[in-house]
Every structure is written in structure tokens, then in C-alpha cells.
């Protein structure tokens, strides 16, 4: 637990020191959302219908930059080797980094929501708490496997290409469940399906967070 908190503190310190990169990341997410809106055109109905999908695709594309960078800071100047020689608990390192990545994805998500409401003319038909919970579970579902795969690809050339190639197929269930839950919050949920989709998201999170935590040590030692 102490390692987890130390890693989380360290990652937050680095993100604060390099906050201009976070601004660039938010700008990237906004650009993607605006491009979706321009591509669909002035069809308010279509934009509103697919607002959830645009939001999560924007978050998914942004996550690849964020996740790749989160491991690059560990390997580019050999900091990971130094951590291994401390020696740091690999599980603590994984959970610290995965939580830091989840928090950053949540930040991107929180900034994306107002823009989605504006450009897609979306409305909230259900409790905003459901949207918050979807954002938390969806971001966590992207961050856990993303942190593991970012560690696998960080030392390879072309890591920026390899990471999305490996990550996207794995997180399809997370994206589907998150899009469905978000769409239900925005368009209405007459059949009370939100709970089922969020339960599915929680189950995938449980699998990803436990499996990736176990595998991370082997990955960084390799």
C-alpha cells in the first residue's frame, strides 16, 4: 500500500511538473470530439443519438497517448531500472500507475462531457451520478490493461503504434458497456438497463485489475 501511494504521489508530481502536456492532451480530446461533430454534419438527431459513442471513442484515442507517456517516463532515462533496484513491489508500482492513469482519464472525461453536451445537443435524462459512475468504471477499465500493455511496449520501437494495436481489441467490452451506459443516461432508460451495463463494466474491471496486477511484475522484469 505504501508503494502504491508513493508511486501515485510521484506520478501526480510529474504530471503537475509537466502540466502543459496535460493541457495538450485535453486539447487533443477536444479536437477529436469536434472532428466527430464536423464529420456527422448538422444532423442534431444523429449527434444526440451517438453522443456517448463519440465521447468514449475520444477518450479511448486520448488514452493511448496518455498511457504510452505514463510508461515512457519510466523507461526513457532508466528510472524503472532504478525502481527495480530499490527494490520496489511490482504490484504497488502497477496499482499506483494504473490509479494515476485512471485519474487522468477521469480528468479528460470530465472535461469532455460539457463539450459533448454542447456539440451534440445532448441532455441528461437520468441521474448525473450514473454518468459519473460510468466515467469512473470506464476510465478504470481502460487504465488497467493500458498500463500493463504500455509497460510491455515501452521499450520497443514503435510503441506508440503497438500499444493501440494490442489494447483496442482487449477493451472492446469496456467501450461497448461504457457507450451503452452513457447513451442510456443521455437518451433515457425506460427498461432500467443501466445497472446491468455498469455491473458488466465492474466485472471487467475486477478481471483486468486483478490479472494485470499479477502479470505486471513479469512484464517489467522481462
Amino acid at each position: 500500500m505504501k508503494t502504491l501511494l508513493n508511486v501515485l504521489h510521484k506520478d501526480m508530481l510529474i504530471e503537475w511538473a509537466a502540466r502543459s502536456r496535460t493541457v495538450a492532451l485535453l486539447s487533443f480530446a477536444y479536437t477529436i470530439l469536434l472532428l466527430f461533430a464536423f464529420a456527422i454534419g448538422p444532423d442534431a438527431g444523429a449527434l444526440r443519438l451517438h453522443a456517448g459513442a463519440y465521447m468514449w471513442l475520444g477518450l479511448l484515442l486520448t488514452s493511448t497517448l496518455l498511457l504510452e507517456r505514463s510508461m515512457r517516463i519510466e523507461v526513457e532515462a532508466g528510472a524503472l531500472s532504478k525502481l527495480l533496484l530499490i527494490p520496489i513491489d511490482p504490484a504497488g508500482l502497477f496499482y499506483g500507475k494504473a490509479i494515476a492513469n485512471t485519474l487522468q482519464l477521469l480528468l479528460v472525461g470530465a472535461f469532455s462531457v460539457p463539450l459533448i453536451f454542447v456539440i451534440c445537443d445532448a441532455t441528461l435524462t437520468e441521474n448525473i451520478g450514473w454518468l459519473g459512475l460510468t466515467l469512473i468504471l470506464g476510465s478504470a477499465g481502460l487504465a488497467a490493461p493500458g498500463t500493463l500493455y504500455a509497460a510491455m511496449t515501452a521499450r520497443l520501437s514503435g510503441s506508440q503504434l503497438l500499444l493501440p494495436l494490442m489494447l483496442f481489441p482487449l477493451v472492446v467490452p469496456v467501450i461497448v458497456a461504457a457507450v451503452k451506459a452513457t447513451s442510456l443516461v443521455m437518451l433515457g432508460d425506460p427498461m432500467d438497463q443501466i445497472g446491468a451495463w455498469l455491473t458488466l463494466l465492474a466485472c471487467f474491471n475486477l478481471i483486468y485489475w486483478s490479472l494485470c496486477g499479477i502479470l505486471f511484475g513479469r512484464v517489467i522484469e522481462a
Partner: peptide, 24 residues
């Protein structure tokens, strides 16, 4: 170990790097 990759965080100051490794 002080290898070719010297094991630091480029975005942090020297003091913050040492503070981080001291905590760890």
C-alpha cells in the same frame, strides 16, 4: 547502478528526484 540510462525523472527537479527516490 549508474548505467548509460541514469535513472531519473526528466520533468522533476534534481531535489524532487532525490525526494521521490528517498520516499520509495
Amino acid at each position: 547502478l549508474m548505467g548509460h540510462d541514469i535513472g531519473i525523472y526528466e520533468d522533476l527537479s534534481a531535489a524532487d528526484n532525490l525526494r521521490v527516490f528517498a520516499r520509495m
